[in-house]
Design a protein around this nucleic acid. Structure first.
Length: 277
DNA sequence: ACGGATTCCTGATGGC
DNA sequence: TGCCATCAGGAATCCG
C-alpha cells in the first residue's frame, strides 16, 4: 500500500516523464476515479502544463501552470492498490481507471483494482481548502524531535493509532508504523502517556531511519505497489515486523505475534517490544 | 471526546 | 477442482 516512501518514489520516477508536458485530454473508464467528477476534472486539467511533481504525506501532487500562471493542482491518493504509471508512446496502459494524455505521446495512467483511491483536481488555491489536505500533520522529515514528542501528547491513545493518524504525522501507514515500533522496541498498544521522553526519542529516530531506508530501496512492494516506471520496490526484503506473525523475531528468535490496534493487524515481538517502559 | 465498528472494494488465500 | 469464507487496509462516517 503506498505510504510515504512509495509515493516519494513515484514522484521521483514520474517527474522526468511528465514535467513540462501539457495535459491534452482526460478519459475515465471509471468515472468515480476523478473528483470532483470527470467533466469538472477535465475542465480543470485540460490545457494545463505540469509544472512540478511533489508529495505531501501519502498524496502525490501535480502542480499545474496555465498561461504562465498558477493553474491549480492535481492530488492523487492511491489508498491500497492505486498505481500511477507513465506510459511511453506505443505502450498500452493496464486496466486504467483514468488516463491523462500528455504532449509527446506520454500517457499518465491511474490504475487501482480495489477502487479506493482517486485523483482530485483543484483550481488555483483551492487545494489548501480541501479538508483532508488542510488537516495533514507535519512531514516526518520536517519536524524537530521536541515537536514530535509534543505531538504525541500524554493521553491514553495507543501509540500505533497516533502514528497512523495523518493529522499527527503525515505519510505513515501500517507497514512503517509496525517497522518503526519494532525498531524502537515499543509495543503497538502502548498508551502515549506511558512513553517516556527517552522512548519517544527512540521512536522518532526509528521512524526517520525506516522511512529513509525505505525511500533508498524505492519503497515496499507487497503485491500492488509499482513506481511510475512500473518497477517494484525492494524494502519488503528488509521487513522485520510487518507480515511476520508466527515467524521468529530477527533479533531474539521468539515467535512474532499479532494483535489488532486501531483496526489494523499489528505485528510485534513480545520479547523485544515489552509493554510500558 | 475518543475509541471502536462499519463501509467501501476486489483479488489472494485457505479450508473442505 | 471448485466453492465459499476470510483477510488485506486508508479514511470517512456513525455510534456508544
Amino acid at each position: 500500500m503506498p505510504e510515504l516512501p512509495e509515493v516519494e518514489t513515484i514522484a521521483r520516477t514520474l517527474a522526468p516523464e511528465v514535467l513540462g508536458r501539457t495535459i491534452l485530454s482526460v478519459c475515465a473508464p471509471d468515472p468515480s476515479a476523478l473528483l470532483p467528477g470527470p467533466e469538472a476534472f477535465a475542465a480543470l486539467a485540460t490545457g494545463a502544463v505540469i509544472r512540478s511533481v511533489g508529495r505531501r504525506g501519502k498524496l502525490l501532487l501535480l502542480a499545474l501552470d496555465r498561461n504562465g500562471r498558477d493553474g491549480g493542482d492535481i492530488a492523487a491518493h492511491l489508498r491500497m492498490t492505486g498505481r500511477i504509471v507513465a506510459y511511453a508512446p506505443g505502450q498500452e496502459p493496464e486496466r486504467p481507471r483514468a488516463v491523462l494524455d500528455l504532449s509527446g505521446g506520454v500517457r499518465l495512467c491511474f490504475a487501482d483494482v480495489r477502487r479506493f483511491g482517486a485523483m482530485h483536481a483543484f483550481g488555483p488555491g483551492a487545494m489548501a481548502a480541501w479538508p483532508f489536505y488542510a488537516s495533514l500533520g507535519p512531514e516526518p522529515f520536517a519536524l524537530t524531535e521536541s515537536a514530535f514528542q509534543h505531538r504525541l501528547g500524554a493521553g491514553r491513545a495507543r501509540i500505533k493509532a497516533l502514528l497512523l493518524d495523518q493529522t499527527v504525522l503525515a505519510g505513515i501507514g501500517n507497514i512503517y508504523a509496525d517497522e518503526s515500533l519494532f525498531r524502537a522496541g515499543i509495543r503497538p498498544d502502548t498508551p502515549a502517556c506511558a512513553l517516556t521522553p527517552r522512548r519517544r526519542t527512540a521512536l522518532f529516530a526509528a521512524i526517520q531511519a525506516v522511512l529513509a531506508q525505505a525511500i533508498a530501496e524505492n519503497g515496499s512492494s507487497i503485491r500492488d505497489y509499482r513506481d511510475a516506471h512500473g518497477d517494484a520496490g525492494a524494502f519488503q526484503n528488509h521487513f522485520r515486523a510487518y507480515g511476520r506473525a508466527g515467524q521468529p523475531c530477527l533479533d531474539c528468535g521468539e515467535p512474532m505475534r499479532s494483535m489488532r490496534v486501531a483496526g489494523r493487524t499489528s505485528t510485534y515481538c513480545p520479547h523485544c517490544q515489552p509493554d510500558r517502559r
